[in-house]
C-alpha cells in the first residue's frame, strides 16, 4: 500500500433528519481523542428538504483531502437502503465493508407514475445480491431494533454499534463519546442501542437480518387488466363552473371557447372518475372497459 492509502475512510449516508451528522460527529470525535488527524466533510443546503445527506470521515496520521476518492471507502454506513446503494460504487472493491439499515424511505418522487399497475420507482436491488458482491456486509433492521428498545430514532446508534466492530477502537471509548454526544435523557437507550448493534454485527461478516431479507420481493403480484377509458361530456348540461377542471388530479380537462368542459389531454386521463362524481350537473360520464389482452 502506498502512503496515501493509510488514511481510513468512512462514508456515512442517509436522508435528512436521520442522524447522519450525529454518527459522523461521534466517529470524528473518537478519532481525534485517539490522536488521529481527522477531517469530516458534509454538504448542507438542500439536505433538510428530504434530499440525500452524506458525510465523509477520514482519519490517519495526516489527512489531506476532505472528501474520499471514489473507490476508496473502507466502510460505508447507510442509514437508508437506497442511499447505501447510491454510494456503494465508492466502496473499496476488495476490502470494503457495507453496513446498512434495511429501512426504506420512499420519496414522493418515486410514486409519480400514473401507469396502470405502476409500482414505486424505489431501488429494486435485494440485500442478497448486494451482500454477495462486497467483501463484508451487514444489512440490519436497525430501525426495528431501536424501536424495540423504545425509540426508533436511536437507529443511528445501532449502526454505530455495527460500525464499531469494523474499526479498531475500544468499546468503552465508543460508549464514552456517544454518552457525551447524545442528549442526557437518552444516554441509556443509546448505550443499549449501541450494544445491540455491536452484538448483532459480531454474528458474522456477511449478515442479513430476517426482516431485511428479500427486502423488495415481499410484494404480492397483482394483475391489473388494461382498460379503455371513455370520458363523455354532455355540453348542453355543462355550465362552465370549472370544478372538474380544477379538481382533476392530472389536469387533463379544460374549458373551451364556449366555456364548456372538454378532455384536452386524453392521454393523461387515468379514468379515476373524480370529475364525473364532482360535476354538479352530472354532465360527465367516465367508463372504464377492460380490453382483451393478447395472449402471450
Amino acid at each position: 500500500m502506498d502512503k496515501r492509502n493509510r488514511t481510513t475512510n468512512v462514508l456515512i449516508v442517509g436522508v435528512g433528519g436521520q442522524g447522519v451528522i450525529m454518527v459522523s460527529k461521534v466517529l470524528a470525535q473518537l478519532c481525534q481523542e485517539a490522536g488521529h488527524d481527522v477531517k469530516q466533510s458534509e454538504v448542507h443546503g438542500m439536505a433538510k428538504r428530504g434530499g440525500g445527506v452524506f458525510s465523509h470521515v477520514r482519519f490517519g496520521a495526516k489527512v489531506w483531502s476532505p472528501t474520499i476518492p471514489e473507490g476508496e471507502v473502507d466502510i460505508l454506513v447507510a442509514l437508508e437502503w437506497a442511499e447505501g446503494l447510491r454510494w456503494i460504487r465508492h466502496l473499496k472493491p476488495e476490502t470494503g465493508t457495507f453496513i446498512a439499515d434495511c429501512q426504506k424511505i420512499v420519496p414522493p418522487f418515486a410514486c409519480r407514475s400514473r401507469k396502470r399497475g405502476a409500482e414505486p420507482a424505489y431501488a429494486p436491488q435485494t440485500p442478497e445480491e448486494i451482500i454477495d458482491q462486497v467483501h463484508a456486509g451487514y444489512v440490519m433492521d436497525a430501525t426495528g431494533l431501536a424501536a424495540n428498545l423504545g425509540n426508533a430514532r436511536a437507529a443511528n446508534t445501532v449502526l454505530l454499534g455495527a460500525l464499531s466492530t469494523a474499526l479498531d477502537f475500544p468499546e468503552e471509548a465508543w460508549a464514552q463519546v456517544i454518552a457525551a454526544t447524545v442528549p442526557p435523557k437518552s444516554v441509556q437507550i443509546n448505550a443499549r442501542a449501541f450494544a445491540e448493534g455491536r452484538a448483532w454485527a459480531l454474528g458474522g461478516t456477511k449478515r442479513i437480518d430476517v426482516t431485511a431479507s428479500g427486502l423488495q420481493k415481499s410484494r404480492a403480484e397483482v394483475h391489473h387488466p388494461q382498460v379503455e377509458t371513455v370520458v363523455e361530456i354532455t355540453a348542453d348540461w355543462c355550465k362552465g363552473c370549472d370544478i372538474c377542471v380544477k379538481s382533476c388530479p392530472e389536469r387533463c380537462l379544460r374549458l373551451n371557447d364556449q366555456l364548456k368542459a372538454e378532455l384536452a389531454l386524453p392521454d393523461l386521463c387515468t379514468g379515476c372518475q373524480l370529475c364525473s362524481w364532482l360535476c354538479p350537473d352530472m354532465a360527465i360520464s367516465v367508463t372504464n372497459t377492460p380490453v382483451q389482452e393478447a395472449a402471450s
Binding site: 436522508v15 428530504g50 434530499g51 447510491r86 414522493p108 418522487f109 418515486a110 431501488a123
Partner: peptide
Amino acid sequence: FEFAPMVRPPV
C-alpha cells in the same frame, strides 16, 4: 455496481 441510483430530489 453498474445500476443507476434512485432519484431523490429535495422536496
